[in-house]
């Protein structure tokens, strides 16, 4: 089990390193997704299945959506761009790392034993009760936090009439 952890950790580190060093934003994004998936595997190995699932859904999912947005927003050039971006050089690295992770997951399924290291982990119900019980103010504050983000993005992102060209 420990070996699995070290492999996953190595994958995370490698992928994160490539995120930082890569010059191309979209390629860096591919590595980022791999890093996040590897991180969720580490969470799982530590016995925190709920955190692992959240990591996949929120980070992996959200990042993937952003990725698709970038491609979509390019409009008519998208197909051409996609061809140049997804050259073998771009996807081979992340794929190998992802395959390593897949191998680990496969081993876990075949071996059939649950992670030995188990930390007491609040499950979904406990998390929800905590969020809407003692931490209700935190939830409300987080919802207020979205407002400046929204307003700021709206103001900074839109075209002013004085700069209409």
């Amino acid at each position: 089990m420990e070996t699995l952890f070290y492999i996953a950790a190595a994958v995370t580190l490698l992928a994160t390193l490539r995120v930082i060093t890569h010059v191309h934003a979209v390629h860096a994004l591919l590595y980022l997704v791999v890093a996040l998936i590897a991180l969720s595997l580490i969470f799982y190995l530590l016995g925190a299945e709920f955190a692992a699932a959240l990591e996949i859904i929120i980070y992996g999912g959200a990042i993937m959506v952003l990725f698709i947005f970038v491609v979509m927003l390019l409009g008519p050039l998208a197909v051409e761009q996609e061809r140049t971006w997804l050259t073998p050089g771009a996807w081979v690295g992340p794929s190998i790392l992802a395959l390593v992770l897949l191998g680990e997951v496969g081993y876990l399924i075949v071996a059939g034993d649950l992670p030995a290291i188990s930390i007491q982990e609040p499950r979904q119900k406990a998390v929800s009760i905590a969020l809407f019980g003692p931490y209700i103010i935190g939830v409300e504050l987080a919802s207020m936090l979205l407002l400046p983000g929204l307003i700021g993005a709206y103001h900074l992102g839109r075209r002013l009439s004085s700069e209409a060209r």
Binding site: M144, P148, I151, G152, A153
Partner: peptide
């Protein structure tokens, strides 16, 4: 909240 608003 403070930082994000200030940034805009």
């Amino acid at each position: 909240l403070l930082g994000l608003s200030l940034c805009s």
